[in-house]
Structure formats: structure tokens, C-alpha cells
Amino acid sequence: MSRRLTVEADGGSRGNPGVAGYGALVRDTESGALLAERAEPLGKVSNNVAEYRGLIAGLEAARDIDPAADVLARMDSKLVVEQMAGRWKIKHEDMRRLALQAREVASAIRDAGGSVRYEWIPRAQNSDADALSNDGMDGLTIDRRHDDGAGVGESRVAESEQSSGSGGGAVTTGAACAPVPQRSGTPVRVVLVASSGGSSSAPAAAVQRLLGGAPRCLVTASGDDAVETAAEVGDALGVDAVVDRGWSDPASGPGAWDRVVERGGTTVVVCPPDVVRAVLGHLLGVPADRQSRLAAPAGSLAGVEVWPGDDVSIAFTGRT
């Protein structure tokens, strides 16, 4: 029977692109014993490039421990997991090259009699790899083996976020999406991102420029285009997306809008263009048969501010 190994990998960039690094570790799946740790600085690259480099390092470490192992690669980057599993297209040339490298390592493991599977996990469940990636961003290079797990201190594990089903879709709750009390003179801010079936890097970059890298609540509709765009935006902001199926249909969009406003704070919502138009039309009192005239091209942003007393201001529409 093949040995079972679990890879936990992560990567990050302070600025996206900015100072970047990756971290990866390997555990014995049965015992949980830590077998290997790797981290490395990457210079100035994007979050997604760093995530892929972390995956490659983790797979290589697992192959070095047992070339024929059954490997489970766990990451908090939904984009990388879905692309490596073959469910999402790889649209960026840099990522195509890195994905090919990762697949070559995975193929070598399979050719030796092992297997490789990929699994998405919330960020809070990937804290050890995240800590190693921060070591990499701090300029440290780590390549440690702990073949018997001896001498390894307690793992750095943060309290896990809670996941539950809601309306048939997975919902991840965490500090970034906790209710925010509204303060006098401060509006609730919502950025609506019209999902795109093409390259999703443009809206992610636009959101990052607008909000910077500070954590924000990120909500997404349940469709593939929205979830993929939200994965790019989430990597840019450093947050996981909450799935709310109410943002998937123009008829339920206004109700989903009310939930976001009730939460308070700043929220980024990724949803289909027709839902963006439906919500803007709802706020502006535009009849449904005229909402198609509102500007919400795929990949664009619309900004809305809600002030105390439900005074709504449309800050911008159609921004790219």
C-alpha cells in the first residue's frame, strides 16, 4: 500500500505584485507528523505566481520523501486548486508555465505508482503554510526534513473558521465578513464587480487599486464565472469569498443587497452583469424594462455608498 502524504502550500505577495514568498510543508496523513518544511523569497511577483510556486515546492518535497506516495495537496487558493484539478481554464501565460511544472512533478509521482489530488481549504485551516510563506516574504529560505517528526514543536494553528451550508451553497464566515457597526458620518460601501467569462485579472487588479490590500468582506454569486472572478479578487485582497446564491439572479439581487447593507462596513460583491444592473436599477428606481440601459459591462466595477438614513449615492459605474 502506498504511503499517504498531505501537502499544505501557500504563497503571498505584499502588494500584488510585490515582495513575495511561498511556504509548503508535508505531513504524514495517518499520524499528522510533520515531515518537511520549505519556504523561499521570490522577489516581486503576484500572489498567484507565489501560490503556484508553493504548490510546486510542496509536491517536490512529497516526491523526495516517497516518490510513489498518495498525495493530497491542500491550498486556500481556489484558483490554483480548480486549475490544477482541470475544472478551470488557465488564462495567464505565467500560470500556464507554473501549472505545467506542477503537473510534471505530479506525473512523476503517478508514474512511480502514486497519486495526486487537490483540495481547497479556508485560509484559517492553512495557517502553518501561511506562516512559512511569510517567512519567505521576510527573506528566509527554509528546507527542513523531519522524517520521524522528532524535535518539532507545536504547529502554529489558528482557530478555524466555521463553514456551513446556506441555500445549497457553501458559506465561509470569518472576521472579514462579521457585522460592522455603522459609525456616524461613515457610509456602508459596496463595490459591485460584474463577473467576466474571459480573463478575470482586470477586475481583480481594479479592486486592488481601489481598496488596497486591506481585508474586506468578499461575496460572490454561485456561477462559475463569478466564483472564478471572486477567486482572483480574493487573492488580490487576501480574503476568502462568501457564496450567496441571492447574487446569482436579477430577481433576488435586491434582497441580497439588503443583507450586505445590513452587515455594514465595506463589501466587494462579484455577480453577473445583469444582477449589477438589477441592483443599480432597484436603487435608482429604474423600471425593469429599462435596466439594460445601465452601464455594467463584464469585468467592470460599480461603487455605491449608503449613508445613515438610507441615503444612497452611486459613486461610479462601469469602471475598469
Results as ranks from 00 to 15, higher is better:
Ser133Arg: 14
Ile121Pro: 10
Gly253Met: 00
Ser160Ile: 03
Arg3Pro: 01
Cys217Gly: 15
Ala296Cys: 08
Thr6Lys: 14
Leu237Asn: 03
Gly299Cys: 05
Leu5Pro: 05
Asp76His: 12
Arg293Asp: 15
Arg14Val: 02
Leu210Asp: 00
His282Thr: 12
Asp28Trp: 02
Arg74His: 08
Pro250Lys: 05
Glu119Lys: 14
Val116Ile: 03
Tyr22Arg: 11
Gln101Cys: 08
Leu140Pro: 00
Lys78Pro: 02
Ala150Asp: 12
Met1Lys: 04
Val71Phe: 10
Ile90Val: 12
Tyr118Met: 04
Ile65Asn: 06
Gly234Asn: 02
Ala296Lys: 01
Val191Phe: 01
Gly12Asn: 05
Gln83Arg: 09
Asp235Gly: 15
Val312Trp: 13
Val171His: 13
Val304Cys: 07
Gly149Tyr: 06
Ser127Trp: 15
Arg293His: 10
Met1Phe: 04
His282Pro: 09
Ile142His: 06
Glu305Phe: 05
Ala112Ser: 12
Met75Lys: 05
Leu100Trp: 13
Arg63Ala: 11
Asp76Trp: 04
Pro203Tyr: 04
Lys89Arg: 10
Ile314Lys: 00
Leu284Trp: 01
Val157Pro: 03
Asp148Gln: 14
Leu294Trp: 00
Leu211Asp: 05
Arg14Asp: 06
Thr6Trp: 11
Gly238Ile: 02
Glu119Ser: 13
Ala214Val: 03
Gly255Ile: 00
